[in-house]
Amino acid sequence: MAPMLEVDRLTKVYRRGWPAARETFRLEADFRVEEPGIVGMMGPNGSGKTTLFELITGSNSPTSGTVRVQGRDIHRVRTDERDRLAIHYHQSYQVRHFSSLYPNALLERAGSAYPMVHLFDEPQFNTQDGYIGFMLDFFRRLSGEGRLVFLCVHPNERFHLEILEEICERFIFVQKGTVTPIADFDGLVAHEPCRTYLGGLLTERAA
């Protein structure tokens, strides 16, 4: 059985300027997730989280490297079927926009009827209305049905960390284009760049 997700020596480089283009941003990622489950993702604004999501869903092309969802190279799958492998959820809606240099006729079929990887980009969590509970149950249901869920949270309140601790089995920390997989919540809050990023929230949590 192929791993749920393999991100293999993936890079995305943005350059600007002419005639001598200067590198403005570089994202590098190399990790794999074998089993279905829920992965928490965190990192400062502009660190490359959304770019990584776009590369995983195949809506953005890598400079080099590959993304395989259950063994299928997402960037070689027909653009109209990529969402059968991975989908990117924005705060309350979903957008599908794909482009490829090649026509669909030259690309591969998805081989799946329902998306295997679900990427949630900063869902709005607020404790007032109770939707958090329904969203967390939905993530658990997807994971229970054999899907892989990524939950990207930008924690600015203590309960955001509670959510991550409650529901995520493993983590990914992204900073300045560097993607670091972390085994568990204790490892996450012990990771020095993450401690700096969370700052006051950690001490508040201990209090």
Binding site: T127, D129, L136
Partner: peptide
């Protein structure tokens, strides 16, 4: 639905 822990914590 109200049995959910996060729903109990909410205003609802």
């Amino acid at each position: 639905l109200q049995a959910n822990k996060w729903v109990r914590r909410s205003a609802l």
